[in-house]
Structures are given as structure tokens and as C-alpha cells.
Amino acid sequence: MDLSLFVWRQQAPDVQGEMVAYSAKGISEDMSFLEMLDVVNEGLISNGEVPIAFDHDCREGICGTCSQVINGVPHGPMERTTVCQLHMRNFKDGDTIFIEPLRAKAFPILKDLIVDRGALDRIIQEGGYISVHTGGVPDANSVLISRKDAETAMDASECIGCGACVAACPNGSAMLFTASKVSHLAALPQGKIEADQRVRSMTNAMKKEQFGNCSNHYECNAVCPKGVKISFIAKLNREFIKSMISGDSSD
């Protein structure tokens, strides 16, 4: 099939970018979206042009590196699917496709479709962990965890840190991302001990990194490739309220 593409090209962070038109010819429906872009890039290279820069690594939907907004939806039209797992059989011959980077204040564009998501790492650095030393821990079965709690923790920690939630959120909020980590750890007995401090410092970090506030639009969940649930945002809110009631208020 043949497609027309409009792709955001921006040479460097502080250079003005623009949408540029390309055509992708002879695309097979077995290709992944990124393989389609590979084909376009090979064409650009052979014309001596600079290929479209886009982030990707595992190409199997787990590393969270790939990040594009396709026709206005982060990760494109298919539910629960990363760009790298999106296949061209979901498009038709003659389609026009708009490809843009994830946009948010907290995600400066580095080049073309590549943005800097370091802010998400910095949120985790503010408490997205259990402060355990290496070694000197008890036997793994000495603390029992109900299957339900383990499953909740697992649901939450499926987040791949792709940032699509931020890009989809009308407020540029990282609430779903942050909530997934807070909920993962708060569901486990090992993580409960630091829960008060964690939820406060992580939400503070979210603000400091210039993410917006959550107004419960739920767009984030709609585009999340791992289907991280919005009930985790409610859980974060609960944890926050708990920390205000039980924790010391000096924060």
C-alpha cells in the first residue's frame, strides 16, 4: 500500500520544527509501524537526506522507548499497543498519517520525534523504591503476600515508562505514571513502611518537573499500552490523604 505521511521534523531542541510531507510507497501490511518508517528512512538516506529520528529499542512492546503520536493518539490507533507493535494492516492504502512527538512541557524535544523523558526517571528517584540494602534481607517466603496484593502490585508495575499518558493528558500530567509506582509499592507489605514519605515526595517531584495536575480526564488510561488502570490514581490519592492524616505534616 501507499501512504502519505506528515512528520514533525525538528533539528535540535531550540530550533523551530515543522510538519514535513513524505510518501511511503509499497508498504506491506506485515510491517510494523517502525518498519514502515525504516523504509521511508532508507529512501531518505539514499537521497542524501537526514533520516527521521525516532526512539525505539526492543521493538516488542516492553522497553517503553518508542514514543510517537500517530494521528493525534500516542502509540496510534490500536488499544494497548505500543508503536513498535502496531502493524500496518491497521491502515489502508492511501491513508494520510500524521506523526508527532510526545508533547508536554516536561518532555523537551531533542530531535524530530525524540523527546527527553528524564523527568520520569527523576520522579522515581524521589522515592519510587523500597530502601533495601543489598544482602541481609529475610528469606523470600518469610513475608507472605496475598495473591490479590501480588496481582495488584503486578498490574501497577506493568508500566513501561513510555510517557504516553503524559502526552495524551490535556494537562501534561504524569499522574498515571506516578500512581502506578506508588500503587505498586503500597500494595506490598515491604513497601508500606515508606508509603507516606514516598507519595509525598513523588508527587512533589511531579510538580517540580513541571508536569500538570490531574483533572481526571482519563485520556491517559485510554492510550496506556499496558492498560494501567485509573483506579491506581485513586489509590495514589488515598495514599496521599493517608499520609496527611498519619504521617508527620512537615513533609
Binding site: 523504591y129 523500597i130 533495601v132 543489598t134 544482602g135 534481607v137 529475610p138 528469606d139 523470600a140 517466603n141 513475608v143 507472605l144 503476600i145 496475598s146 495473591r147 501480588a150 496481582e151 502490585a153 503486578m154 508495575s157 505498586h184 509499592l185 506490598l188 515491604q190 513497601g191
Partner: peptide, 19 residues
Amino acid sequence: IDQCVAQGVPFARDYAGYL
């Protein structure tokens, strides 16, 4: 395994809560 559980890795568990 001990270390990872202490870090919060959500390994699969049986209904009694054991790994």
C-alpha cells in the same frame, strides 16, 4: 530471590501467599 522480593518485585504467588 530474597533480594528481589525485598525490593518489591511482584513474583507470582499461590493462594496462601507463598511464592
